[in-house]
């Protein structure tokens, strides 16, 4: 019996398409219980990296290590992975159940699992409906069903949020949580960083075929050191506001300070956040409430990308 897949490690991976170098010496480790997102602009190498892991492209240099052993993408690894392609469509004249049954047969999965998966992705009611009649979100859910059908150790999702409604997103989040809890591995390419940031463990930023940043969202936020937005709800916008705005400007260090009705918003560098919040304590009577907004992962991404280029 093959031991369970615990780590995947890409070492110095390079891929060429003719003269075009799609990946340049990528080092990346994916561990059990981890959800890692691949982010980057179009042409950054995300799809090529995924294609490599699916065995669709050959590397020009570098190697893949599975649980510490140099292995490459072989049938053993393929049996252990589930994949959701971007904007997947499936044969229109088959129904959802027939689509899943094919993959169940191909992967040697028991037939009853098809119904479990249809229920899991919320498509049991449409199991006998032809894919032609499916909405984009339903097709995406069916694709997610195909990916999780064999309960693979490695789940590769390419733009999984595309077309999903709130209910569909909840299904996706529950799958991510289940895979993490079961100590499996998830690799996900996405542009919806704000949507996924609370559900991922690490982000790998690719640009020009190279890894520009690789860390947890918290650590990347620290690295980017983007201003934090603090909003004070004022008890009375006419009472002592000028003094408060003046004090806030002192903390903002050139960041935006805006007063809109009873809300004072201040953008401060992360290092000035605590002193600014202290101001709230000092001016307790003037301020009714305070809200702190950290920059979203999309802003961090933009900043890191700007720095990289």
């Amino acid at each position: 019996m093959t031991p369970p897949l615990k780590t995947l490690e890409l070492r110095e991976l390079s891929v060429h398409y003719g003269k075009l170098q799609a990946l340049r010496g990528v080092d990346l480790t994916l561990s059990a219980g981890e959800v890692l997102i691949l982010a980057g602009p179009n042409g950054a190498g995300k799809s090529t990296l995924i294609k490599y892991l699916l065995g669709l492209v050959k590397p020009s240099a570098g190697a893949l290590y599975v649980d510490g052993a140099r292995r490459g993408v072989d049938d053993g690894l393929k049996r252990d992975l589930g994949y959701l392609p971007e904007s997947v469509a499936f044969a229109e004249n088959l129904d959802g159940e027939q689509v899943l049954r094919f993959f169940a047969r191909a992967r040697g999965v028991p037939r009853q699992r098809v119904h479990q998966v249809l229920e899991r992705v919320g498509l049991l009611h449409a199991a006998r409906r032809r894919v032609r009649g499916y909405s984009r979100g339903m097709r995406q859910r069916l694709g997610l069903g195909v990916a999780i059908l064999s309960e693979p150790r490695l789940l590769i999702l390419d733009e999984p949020t595309g077309g999903l409604d709130q209910e569909g997103l909840e299904v996706l989040w529950s799958v991510l949580a289940e895979w993490r809890a079961a100590d499996r591995l998830v690799l996900m390419a996405t542009h919806d960083l704000t949507l996924v940031e609370r559900r991922v463990d690490r982000m790998c930023l690719l640009e020009g075929g190279s890894v520009r940043a690789l860390d947890t969202p918290t650590r990347l936020r620290e690295l980017a050191a983007l201003p934090v937005r603090v909003s004070f709800r004022l008890a009375d916008p006419r009472d002592g506001v000028e003094a408060l705005v003046a004090q806030a400007r002192g903390f903002a260090d050139g960041g935006e300070v805006a007063l809109r009705e009873d809300m004072l918003s201040v953008e401060v560098p992360p290092a000035r956040l605590l002193p600014l919040l202290q101001l709230h304590t000092d001016l307790g009577k003037l301020v009714q409430g305070v809200r702190v907004e950290e920059p979203g992962l999309d802003a961090v991404y933009d900043h890191l990308l700007e720095e990289a280029t």
Binding site: K51, L54, G55, L56, D75, K78, R79, L81, Y83, P85, E86, S87, V88, A89, F90, A91, F103, A106, R107, V146
Partner: peptide, 17 residues
């Protein structure tokens, strides 16, 4: 080409075949 257009060719070839 049908698989290619439906974005399922990669999915099919990601199976051990």
């Amino acid at each position: 080409v049908g698989e290619r257009e439906r974005n399922t060719l990669g999915l099919l070839l990601s199976l051990p075949v």
